[in-house]
Write a protein that binds this DNA or RNA. Structure first.
Lengths: 142, 142
DNA sequence: AGTTTCTTGCAAATAACTCGCGTTTTTATT
DNA sequence: AATAAAAACGCGAGTTATTTGCAAGAAACT
């Protein structure tokens, strides 16, 4: 989890071909600081309070940032989207079926498994990145 | 993919402690016949046309069937739920980031990976079943 | 600075899903 | 088979999550 300065954020946006607006920078900065995927609600709540950003703006920036490959969306079967900064590395997480606990697990590779799956696939030739979610009950809910 | 008769469906419902209503039987039968997860929209559309089932009823039955462990929900980051029959076996799928193509891949085991993840986890002791989604672009979208 | 193009705020619209309630169906019991 | 309690249903209205139209404002190019 590298540390990104404001200049780094701006560089990321420029390299992605996106305009560097104040709000877009804020949205991406916010996500860079998190250790786990956050809900859109949390982002809107925080950014609205802190800088008065409108929810439509948050949604629009999440879309543009995702299309640029800078952030990643996951739903975790909870009925609303979560976003996180796109590190480029595959992400693996344990998800609670009851509460919304999500725990990211580092140091795991499933590249071999992905290769095996692609070999068996008829509709996919290759995958960009991948993510794996394992669902169960966390200690508190079990 | 075993073949389930109407009697089998009824037995499944009874063993799960659910009432055997006409509509509930239809919803579960519908899902048993699919080879891949289907959207709620597809289910409502088909069941409304065929038997006049109301959408609220479809939703309520999906909830009760899921709570009983007979079906499984997945969102695939598309913003709406998909459901499939719960086979008890882990499921692994390739998901297109662009269109909504979902391809299930059989014959893969990631039990060792899951074990490794649980060993590293702080918040989870064990998982019931699991599912893995690998995201990329399908051949048509690539 | 001027202009083109993208972004924003606001309010209204849409999509996905849920709820209240009176009526009907299922299931347990006679 | 009749019957009563519990659960399920349809229908319309309500929520929640997300999107859109449009006029005004900010970035980026010249």
């Amino acid at each position: 989890m590298a540390i990104y300065s404001k200049e780094d954020i701006i560089t990321l946006l420029q390299e992605a071909g996106l305009r560097v607006t104040h709000h877009r920078t804020s949205v991406l900065s916010f996500l860079v600081k998190q250790r786990a995927p956050v809900t859109v609600y949390e982002m809107i709540d925080s950014l609205r309070k802190k800088e008065g950003i409108d929810q439509a703006t948050v949604y629009r920036n999440l879309t543009s940032l995702q299309e640029a490959g800078l952030i990643k969306r996951s739903d975790f079967n909870h009925g609303h989207a979560h976003y996180e900064f796109e590190t480029g590395r595959p992400s693996h997480q344990l998800v609670c079926n009851n509460c919304e606990t999500i725990e990211k697990i580092d140091g795991i590779s499933i590249d071999d498994t992905v290769k095996k799956m692609l070999k068996k696939s008829k509709k996919f030739k290759r995958t960009t990145t991948h993510s794996m979610e394992i669902y169960g009950l966390c200690k508190s809910c079990a």
